[in-house]
Design a protein around this nucleic acid. Structure first.
Length: 297
DNA sequence: CAGACGTGGTT
DNA sequence: TAACCAAGTCT
């Protein structure tokens, strides 16, 4: 049902809420019994990693560590190992550090206020708002890449948002933030879902979009993106690739690894050494003796 | 604040 | 195929 409303924002809200009610995916972190910790785990994993790849890792993680204290009691290296091939393994380290902070400073319960969430390792503006909104049903601007794209198109009338989040975007998102907490929380997840399923980056399904008639980009004739080339993420031959190969060996080793096993993953010694040093500096790898390494204890 | 930071799927 | 994209954070 669509509510009779008087403002454009309220119309947008009810339209998206109705659409979400009929089209939302049945994701485990949205289940009624998903704990705040489960929501937080999902948010860490979903930072730059697609839902499909997160699903199995999320289930395995929570089975092993159902509460923050469970993870905090384990070695950070175990978090890195469980992270598997989700990518950006520093997130695993930060999630472990967040679990320690929650255990030591918050009695083992994920804090429910935004500033406390923001103070946790690996929790930035988006994740703090997302956990506060999804887990605690609070009223926050939840501005991720999906919501930014929906705003860019439906409100601003351009195909893509700027590379970095601008003050203008935050202003727009704040203007459109529903007044009540429950509606704001529903709007946050609904706008994200719309961006993820319909208003997608590559080929949006405008024909199936509930905002078709309200969309400024549509009204403007869907003009193509004009800004500077959106820089790709080159990977082949980068330190990141070497780090990934090194860490993969450590993850699968379940113990100490001699230098020669690491040397085998990359031919170029200078870059290889730089990558390994970087992993050590980041705390992802621990030197135990000259020429011997392992995941952090 | 631009750039670093993994990995795999899609176009 | 190379480029782009995926619920970002940190420095």
């Amino acid at each position: 049902m669509v509510a009779i409303t008087s403002t454009p924002a309220a119309l947008l809200h009810s339209t998206v809420l109705d659409w979400y009610g009929a089209n939302a995916r049945d994701l485990p972190w949205r289940a009624a019994d998903a704990s705040p910790w489960a929501v937080m785990v999902s948010e860490f994993m979903l930072q730059q990693t697609p839902v499909k790849r997160v699903l199995p890792a999320y289930a395995a993680w929570l089975e092993r560590w159902p509460a923050p204290a469970d993870l905090a009691a384990d070695a950070p290296g175990e978090a890195v190992r469980m992270w598997g091939r989700l990518g950006y393994p520093r997130r695993a380290l930060r999630l472990h550090a967040a679990a320690v902070a929650i255990t030591e400073q918050h009695g083992g319960e994920v804090p429910d206020d935004h500033p406390a969430l923001l103070a946790l390792p690996g929790v930035g503006e988006y994740t703090a708002a997302a956990v506060a909104s999804f887990a605690f049903r609070q009223r926050h601007v939840v501005l991720d890449t999906n919501v930014r794209r929906v705003f860019a198109r439906a409100v601003t009338g351009v195909e893509y948002p700027a590379q970095a989040t601008t003050a203008a975007e935050r202003r727009t998102a704040t203007e459109y933030l529903p007044a009540t907490a429950e509606t704001a929380a529903a709007w946050a997840v609904g706008a994200m879902e719309l961006g993820a399923l319909v208003c997608t980056a590559r080929s949006p399904e405008c024909g199936a979009c509930p905002l078709l008639r309200h969309c400024a980009w549509q009204r403007a004739g869907r003009p193509p993106y004009e800004g500077p080339a959106r820089r790709g993420q080159s990977y082949e031959g980068t330190d990141r690739q070497v780090r990934g190969k090194l860490l993969a060996v450590l993850r699968e080793a379940h113990g100490e690894v001699p230098q020669e096993r690491l040397d085998a993953v990359w031919h170029e010694p200078v870059q290889r050494a730089r990558a390994l040093d970087g992993l050590v500096a980041d705390g992802l790898v621990e030197p135990v003796a000259p020429g011997v390494y392992r995941l952090p204890r």
